[in-house]
Design a protein around this nucleic acid. Structure first.
Length: 272
DNA sequence: CGGGCCCCCTGGTGGC
DNA sequence: TGCCACCAGGGGGCCC
């Protein structure tokens, strides 16, 4: 499941392939992948357009175009965005193909068809589509900002972390990893965290995300970066996917419960 | 505002 | 070996 680190890796690896390149052809194999336009409209808008920089907002990718518009992509569960040679074999679950003028093509592959491609006419529309909370790796994200996202909420702290409007980019993996690093039980009421706990959680969120990026993202099944390479961070996860194994801190057996409808792994001893 | 549930989807898994 | 119910889950929508 691509979360902030994985989307950031896609952004970094896809950018060199597309920036400055002109679209020669577009092929939509599954129209359902297009969120707010028809295949015809995408074709009209994209063919002849030139890609600029690649941006990320939360789990949204925004590929700028010379016209000032953005091609906005959300990978959801199983989406992949890769740059491939135009003569490469067509993989299963290919949904949208964008041929560029440098012998490469952007492949949007999505087994479960949850991923979506949006059209934004300008930066404002990109912001409306990717309307998410503060970026946890930005300088603006301080312990005070995190505290503001949690304060006064009756929600469980994990549910808060998963709420994209409160904090951008955390999904199930990094919510669990962050709460473990901070030593906070996922079912704690968000508003019950004291100043020290918020500070620890702030530090933990940034560390979980930063380490994941340094390890190229987490590949559990589908995730690959823009070059088609898997990440390594799955080998460094502390709790996610490790229910029944030993806690890396105290060797207790890691527990699995359901929080906010999501499978949740935590250490009953370390996370109070 | 928040909790719970459904839906979108497909492939993997476990029970029988 | 085969069939099938069930699960995973990001995000939007809906109801209460």
């Amino acid at each position: 499941m691509p979360e902030l680190p994985e989307v950031e890796m896609v952004r970094r690896t896809i950018a060199p392939h597309i920036t400055g390149r002109v679209v020669e052809a577009v092929q939509v194999l599954w129209p359902g992948s297009l969120a707010n336009m028809t295949p015809e409209l995408l074709h009209t808008r994209l063919v002849g357009a030139r890609f600029g920089a690649a941006y990320r907002r939360g789990k949204y990718l925004g590929l700028a175009l010379g016209s000032g518009a953005y091609l906005v992509i959300h990978l959801r569960m199983t989406g992949r965005l890769t740059a491939c040679p135009i003569d490469s074999t067509q993989e299963r679950h290919l949904r949208v193909l964008i041929v560029l003028d440098n012998g490469t093509a952007l492949h949007f592959v999505d087994q479960r068809k949850f991923g979506r491609i949006y059209w934004a006419a300008d930066a404002d529309e990109f912001g409306q589509i990717a309307h998410v909370g503060p970026e946890p790796l930005s300088d603006e994200f301080t312990p005070e900002v995190l505290a503001a996202a949690l304060v006064g909420s009756k929600m469980k702290v994990k549910a808060c972390l998963l709420d994209q409007n409160r904090i951008a980019g955390l999904g199930n993996i990094y919510a669990d990893e962050s709460l473990f690093r901070a030593g906070i039980h996922p079912e704690r009421s968000a508003s019950s965290l004291n100043e020290d706990e918020v500070k620890r959680l702030w530090q933990a969120i940034r560390a979980s995300l930063q380490h994941a990026i340094e390890h190229g993202g987490t590949t559990l099944r589908d995730y690959v970066n823009g070059d088609g390479h898997s990440g390594d961070n799955q080998h460094f996860l502390l709790v996610y996917g490790r229910a029944g194994s030993n806690c890396p801190n105290c060797s207790s057996i890691l527990a699995r419960i359901k929080v906010a409808g999501r499978g949740t792994v935590f250490c009953p001893r370390c996370q109070k």
